[in-house]
Design a binder for these strands. Structure first.
Length: 409
DNA sequence: TCTGGGGTCCTAGGACCC
DNA sequence: TCTGGGGTCCTAGGACCC
């Protein structure tokens, strides 16, 4: 039995962070539209987080690239304007886009804050897929004030590749019959999931275009690259059976990390930062109504050498104190005082729903119950008065350094 | 004045058991 | 005295995405 051909769109906001910042500024009465000048959204060099997150077309014309340093960007374009990121603003515009797209299908996957996949297979009563893409593009521009690229295809991979062709404000199809002319001539670095570590390995084998990769024997790629090799061969040939996932999945881990304004060399100071990071991680964990079984600490030295250690918790928990104790054990075993540390990260992993919890009377000590009540009380105060206004003594100083991430709806 | 922060998934090696 | 191999779990690190 032949499977029905799927009808997929990939909607990608052009220069999302910069466009949305521009709209937010205009709304507040700004006289300039930063989309029309050489401008970027970037971090803060004084906080050592100076990289380019998004750029305007004029900044792109100067040769500025996403993820390069602000220092490099300024060198390329001396009259560059730089604006800070604001994820609350981005979340608002992302939600507006999502609401509009929901009018077209209920099979929508929010792939990132500025990208959605739409499965239109059962929602094309009148008009074809390309016409729907045109309508969406026009409506987003007119009603929301920013532009999108839309990829039109029969699977997610091809729709995603298509939306990336030329920008901005463009619609591209990538039907199976167009693969040889529109996708195969592209360099392998353009293929989704083929990153900068794999490019030189393939170049070494004279595989330079997506077409070269598509015509390589699948077995050879599997032999060298394992599962990744199989996937890359399939992608190069336009094969992708993955579904548009309209139900958001529960997180598998929650993390928080910070690049420090100055390197730290004392265990005590590192523990203070870890304490504040854990405060936020466990808060988010509790808001998700989940428990963690594993804690992971990441340290990055001044020379950008990363190490991580993880450990199992005595019980699955969202308890701040228990998780902090495990974190301190991990720091003791991995950190030698005096080594300059640039970044500190905390993650909780192997999450499970709180309802699944098997409460053992032996594990549920009076002490823990008391601690959980304290966590709950602090959470409620944070909800009411704002995250940073309520904090445990000791965390105050470092809390201010750490930006709190609001959860997705 | 170099080099963010949030994720997911995979791999390789060691421990341990049968 | 000989000394296999499969399965599972755990950990550290790496590749990739936006």
């Amino acid at each position: 039995m032949k499977k029905e051909q799927r009808q997929i769109l990939h909607v990608d906001v052009n220069n999302a962070f910069l466009s949305w910042t521009a709209l937010s500024m205009l709304k507040q009465g700004s006289k300039i539209d930063i989309r029309e000048i050489p401008a970027i959204i970037g971090g803060d060099e004084s906080k050592r987080s100076g990289i380019v997150l998004a750029k305007s077309m004029k900044a792109k014309e100067c040769g500025i690239k996403t993820a390069e340093t602000i220092y490099q960007a300024k060198a390329k374009c001396p009259n560059l304007s730089i604006y800070p990121s604001n994820f609350e603003v981005y979340r608002t515009y992302s939600n507006k886009l999502y609401q509009l797209l929901c009018e077209y299908t209920d099979q929508i996957e929010r792939f990132s804050i500025d990208e959605c996949f739409l499965d239109m297979t059962h929602f094309l009563m009148k008009g074809n897929l390309l016409e729907k893409a045109k309508e969406i593009s026009r409506r987003v521009k007119e009603e929301l004030g920013f532009t999108v690229n839309i990829g039109v295809a029969h699977n997610k991979l091809l729709a995603k590749m298509a939306s990336d062709f030329t920008k901005p404000d463009k619609i591209h199809t990538l039907w199976e019959k167009e693969i040889p002319t529109r996708m195969w001539p592209l360099p392998i670095s353009e293929l989704f999931m083929l990153g900068k570590k794999t490019v030189p390995k393939l170049y070494h084998k004279q595989i330079k275009t997506i077409g070269d990769l598509a015509h390589t024997q699948e077995e050879k790629l599997i032999k060298q690259f394992g599962k990744q090799g199989k996937m890359l061969w399939e992608y190069a040939n336009g094969i992708d059976h993955s579904e548009v996932k309209s139900k958001p999945e529960k997180p598998k881990g929650i993390g928080n990390s910070i690049t420090l304004p100055q390197n730290l060399v004392e265990t005590e100071k590192i523990e203070e930062i870890v304490s504040a990071l854990i405060e936020q991680v466990t808060y988010r964990l509790r808001r998700q109504n989940m428990l963690a079984e594993v804690v992971n600490i990441q340290l990055r030295t001044k020379d950008f050498v990363d190490t991580s250690h993880q450990g199992k918790l005595p019980i699955a928990t969202a308890n701040t104190k228990i998780i902090l104790e495990k974190a301190k054990e991990l720091i003791q075993e991995m950190y030698h005082e005096g080594i300059p540390i640039r970044l500190i990260g905390v993650r909780v992993d192997h999450l499970k729903e709180k309802e699944e919890e098997q409460i053992s009377l032996f594990q549920q000590t009076k002490q823990n119950t008391k601690q959980e009540k304290l966590d709950k009380t602090i959470d409620q105060l944070k909800e009411k008065y704002g995250y940073h206004l309520i904090t445990r003594a000791g965390n105050l100083e470092v809390e201010n350094m750490i930006q709190f991430r609001k959860e997705k709806e």
